[in-house]
Structures are given as C-alpha cells and as structure tokens.
Write a protein that binds this DNA or RNA. Structure first.
Ligand SMILES: [Mn+2]
Ligand SMILES: [Mn+2]
Ligand SMILES: [Zn+2]
Ligand SMILES: [Zn+2]
Lengths: 130, 130
DNA sequence: TATCAGTTTAGAATGATTCTAAAGTGTTGA
DNA sequence: TCAACACTTTAGAATCATTCTAAACTGATA
C-alpha cells in the first residue's frame, strides 16, 4: 500500500484513493488484460466503486506513463495489458480468449521499411479457432 | 459492367445498382483499404450517392462472401481490404498510413498452440513512426 | 491549515456502427 | 410478359464504447 503510493509517486502520478485501488489490482504480480468495462466489474466484485470516467482516465494515465500497453484487437473495445515487455498474443475474438506469448518470436522476410519511416514495433497476433 | 453483374451473381449477391457501383470501385484491379466513411467519400467524388447504411451492408455482404478481408487496426474504425490473399501490413495510426506487405513473411519461435484450439491466421502488423 | 493544482464524477456529447420498418427492386414461374 | 415475393435500400432512430464538461473534491505544499 505504501509501496503502491511510492510506485505512483515515482511515476509522477498523485496517489489518490482511486489510483491506489486500481494499481493495487492491476499490478499485483500477475499479468492481466483488461478493458475499462472488465476492470470496472472486477473492482465492483471487490466492493470498490470507481466511476467509469475515472477508470478511463486512470487507464490512460497509466498507459501514458508506460505502465500499461494498449492492444487493438477488436473494433469495439480497447484492451490494456499489464505485461509491458515485448511480447505477442494468441487471440480469439469469438471466445474472448487472449493470452500472452512470452517466447521470443522472430519475424523473417520483412521487406524494407518505407522511405522516411521507421519501425516502432512489430505486433504478431495469432488468431485462434476452436 | 456485365462482368460485375456476373461476378456478383456468382457470389450469390443480387446485382443491384448500388452493389454494382461499389464493386466496380472496389474491384478495379488495384488493391484498396477502405473504411465505410472513406468509401462513401470516394463514391461521392464520383457523383454516386449511396446511403451509409447500404455501404455498411454491402461491405459486410462482400466480407461474408470472402470478397474482402476485415482489418482491426484502430479502435475506432474498421478497414476492409480488397487484397484477400495472405499478407501483412505496415501501419501508422497517427499518419493513417497503411500498406500491404506482400512478401512472404515467416514467423519463427511460436510456442505450441493452446490445447483444443487451432490457428486460424497469423497477423503481423509493423507499426511505423515518422 | 489555507491554498491551489490535480483529480474525480455525473451526466451530456460524440461518433462509428447497427437496427427498424417502410418503400423500392431484381428474380422467377406461369 | 408480369404478378408476386423475397431481397435490398434507406432515413432516421438506437446503441454503446469512449470522451468531454464543468463543478465538487482532495493531495501536496508552505
Ligand atoms: Mn462501437
Ligand atoms: Mn468510437
Ligand atoms: Zn499481453
Ligand atoms: Zn492489405
């Protein structure tokens, strides 16, 4: 709890009640993929009611500070990922299935990068079926 | 034009005025990435006014018949791709930059597929910066 | 502890997409 | 040929994730 406060402070984020609760849930040591909605539901289970606006604000604040990654897998919800390392995903939209691929993946055969652009990141999504 | 009619019929799609116009634009031989909005704009330039509802309907009809692929690159719009072959993309959300990678790409080092699932497709998105 | 910038929140707004239901059209069998 | 009907188009309303607004609240600071 004081660790969480320190953690937030060290990221230039004022440790408010809401951020402490959210950070406590998100950064408990297990990697998580959440949406604003799913996070809200989890917090509600734990009897914490934080407005959706604050949940959105906080997810973005954390994202902007590099504490979360953002995943665009489906057109109608954004996932935030507590695993900020370089990794990829198995994903099934139909089954809401999303898990990390932490093994090193190598992508071979890329053509040269378009003129005046540089590669920011390579994302591999392995779409699964039943 | 009669080719387009035949083309639509051969895909179990009734060749309506609107579908003929849209197919004529989309399948002119050059690969395209469109959103409902961008397609509407292009058609308007050509003095064709087709309701947005029909544009959405038609894109989905074409997609369902395998004439288009769907790309989820950004959380707030869906791209449809006339290149239905196996390929990948260079993409920059900020710059609305999206181009095909038609070279064969190989992804090495994937862990084994989760139990009872099978790989439907592997998607590689190369995110670019300026 | 007063002050103030930063934060939370309810509720309104936004915007892409989907839905509804009524009017229009392509197909087809007689 | 053409009536009959299933399929299609469309305007406008609805949906829904997300963002915005602006007022109340609170952590930090001296
Ligand atoms: Mn949506
Ligand atoms: Mn949106
Ligand atoms: Zn992940
Ligand atoms: Zn493409």
């Amino acid at each position: 709890m004081n660790d969480i406060k320190q953690f937030l402070r060290s990221n230039a984020l004022r440790p408010t009640k809401q951020r402490i609760i959210i950070a406590g849930y998100l950064f408990d040591g297990t990697n998580k993929h959440v949406t604003a909605e799913s996070l809200s539901t989890e917090l509600a289970k734990r009897k914490h009611t934080i407005s959706l606006a604050t949940i959105y604000n906080t997810l973005h604040d954390f994202y902007e500070n590099g504490l979360l990654k953002k995943l665009t897998l489906s057109a109608d919800r954004v996932y935030f990922d507590t695993n900020t390392g370089d990794h990829h995903h198995f994903y099934s939209e139909k089954e809401q299935f999303l898990i990390d691929i932490n093994k090193k993946i190598k992508v071979n055969g890329l053509p040269k990068t378009p003129k005046n652009k540089k590669i920011n990141k390579i994302e591999v999504i392995v779409h699964l079926d039943k």
